[in-house]
């Protein structure tokens, strides 16, 4: 099995999709000749032509709105938003249009658009190249929100998203784009949506994480092992629709929960997880559900590593719930 970075794995998924399905079109800013600013689409225009891998004018509402029109007409567009921080001009197209087209047409139309965007901090990108806005999309009925944490998952989840009929927000942890190289199956490889991955099995505490916070959580879990605590790390992979049963099964098994995300805390995705656990697994809990998150501030440039949750912060939360 070949070793790939996440960038290569996503590129491989797009190549498989473009090869196998004539309906697939890739569009966005700089995705063509330049291969994207992170080189995710490198070589695709040369292989599939400028019509199917299209550089667009610089307007996110036009990119997503155009992709919606393509999907209505029967295509499978994959729209790239260069950084998720630039997605807000397309926010209305995503939440008012893309998410609701099937429902508001009573199933006459579907809108299988994939919106890919790198998200998250850790690359010295400052306020407008580092945000984690997943909660905005999780709040919108009709959207599927996917965040991979490994190269193999990035490929498999993207290809699974392209096989579905629903619009998908596919957020890529840019900090992990090239930092990890891992085995990725060749050819068509899909990973089912709405299924968690148990990244590490454990007995005493559950850490719920996704994207770039999965390796951070695994590092903390390994450290906890040295103190005799067996920590389970659940990689959510799809935030909405959530694999709630798997989350609850882990919580019921361990009785302790730490939730980790780099997005700000208030009304972040961790709040939804906490509420779910309180409603459905309260009697299993041995300790309060803790959240380790970004702060309720805009994303800082110089102090980004103080802002971002890291293994020591997760370890501190683990210590708190384990000694509660």
């Amino acid at each position: 099995m070949p070793q790939m970075t996440m960038v290569q794995a996503i590129q491989d998924a797009l190549r498989v999709a473009l090869r196998e399905d004539p309906r697939v079109v890739v569009l966005g800013e700089d995705v063509g000749r330049n291969g994207g600013v992170f080189r995710v689409t490198e070589g695709l225009q040369a292989e599939f032509g400028a019509e199917r891998v299209a550089d667009t004018p610089l307007a996110e509402n036009g990119i997503v709105g155009g992709a919606i029109g393509m999907a209505l007409y029967g295509m499978r567009p994959v729209a790239e938003i260069q950084f998720v921080d630039f997605i807000y001009p397309a926010f209305d197209q995503i939440v008012s249009e893309m998410a609701k087209l099937r429902w508001r047409s009573a199933g006459q139309y579907s809108c299988p658009v994939i919106v890919r965007a790198p998200y998250g901090g850790g690359i010295k990108g400052g306020l407008y190249h580092s945000q984690s806005p997943e909660a905005y999309f999780c709040h919108t009925a009709g959207l599927t929100v996917v965040i991979p944490s490994t190269p193999a998952d990035a490929k498999g989840l993207l290809l699974a998203a392209l096989e579905g009929e629903d619009p998908v927000i596919f957020l890529e942890p840019k900090r992990l784009y090239r930092s990890v190289r891992d085995e990725v199956p060749e050819g068509r490889h899909t990973v089912p949506l709405s299924r968690v991955r148990i990244a590490r099995e454990g007995e005493h505490c559950t850490v719920l994480a996704y994207g770039a916070m999965v390796p951070v959580s695994l590092e903390a879990a390994a450290e906890a092992e040295t103190r005799g605590w067996s920590v389970e790390v659940v990689d959510l992979r799809t935030l909405v629709p959530l694999d709630a049963e798997a989350v609850l099964a882990s919580v019921r098994k361990t009785g302790r929960v730490v939730i980790v995300h780099e997005a700000p805390r208030t009304c972040g995705y961790g709040a939804e997880l906490s509420a779910l656990i309180a409603e459905k697994a309260l009697t299993s809990l041995q300790a309060p559900v803790l959240r380790v998150t970004g702060y309720d501030t805009p994303f800082p440039y110089t102090l980004e590593h103080s802002y971002l949750p890291d293994a020591p912060r997760v370890a501190r939360a683990l210590e708190h719930v384990m000694s509660y």
Binding site: V25, N61, G62, V64, G65, G66, A67, I68, G69, M70, A71, L72, Y73, G74, M75, P77, D92, Q93, S96, E97, K100, L101, R104, S105, Q108, Y109
Partner: peptide
């Protein structure tokens, strides 16, 4: 095609469908 009450949003869909 189904439209929303948000003004002008259907125009990019017309453009995208024409593109397809």
């Amino acid at each position: 095609v189904a439209w929303s009450s948000v003004i002008g949003t259907q125009l990019v869909h017309a453009m995208g469908a024409a593109w397809a």
